[in-house]
Design a protein around this nucleic acid. Structure first.
Lengths: 102, 102
DNA sequence: AGTATATATCAAGGTATCTTGATGTATTGT
DNA sequence: ACAATACATCAAGATACCTTGATATATACT
């Protein structure tokens, strides 16, 4: 119940839906990739990523000074259904342009 | 997108999840049924029902002075998945006891 | 060591959402 | 017509969430 509400709560924000779709579409990205693609300040992106991670949608892997966020794998059926549903949504997603060299 | 957020927003509340599950489990019920089962005041229940209805989960049918809320039928696949997921949740649901004679 | 970069976290203000109590509307019963 | 019942809606206060700007931490570079 609590877990479900956390999952739903993570989806209850337009910015997070876009970030989630962005990562689902582009694969592992670092925070500054999202920051520059979305044109939002870093603390805001970082917070949303944490919420999505805590809700079980994302994983982080730290490499050097970068933190790469990716869709968690394996993902349970329900979250997969949600990702698919989000992929159908009509949203304008910013274009991905790698901002940092790993 | 907007529609999706409305659907998610409707689920983002413990009381609404319980009401939704309650109706899913017990079939069409009137507002006072829920009111007496949940021990919540009428305006609160009424508001939550409206949100669930506007989000596409419920329908209302008025009979005399009662308003019967039921799971919308047909229900799209995504909302069906959600209802199923909610049915798995560990929540303590109040018992149904018809409070009004139709 | 010192500086710059990438990310996380915190505090404060703004905004949305939930709850309650009061009021409005429609239907039934007398 | 009047009273009672079932439900919807509104206003106000409480609570939770989002955004921003500042600060903290950790890694890389020179």
């Amino acid at each position: 119940m609590e877990n479900f509400l956390q999952t739903i709560g993570a989806l209850n924000d337009e910015t997070r839906l876009k970030i989630l779709r962005f990562i689902d579409k582009n694969g592992a990205v670092c925070v500054c990739d999202i920051e520059s693609a979305f044109g939002m300040i870093q603390s805001r992106i970082s917070r949303h990523l944490k919420i999505l991670k805590d809700a079980g949608f994302l994983t982080v892997e730290r490499k050097g000074r970068w933190a790469y966020y990716a869709i968690r794998s394996p993902l349970d059926r329900f979250r997969q259904d949600i990702l698919k549903e989000i992929s159908y949504l009509d949203m304008d997603l910013p274009e991905f342009k790698g901002c940092c060299k790993p």
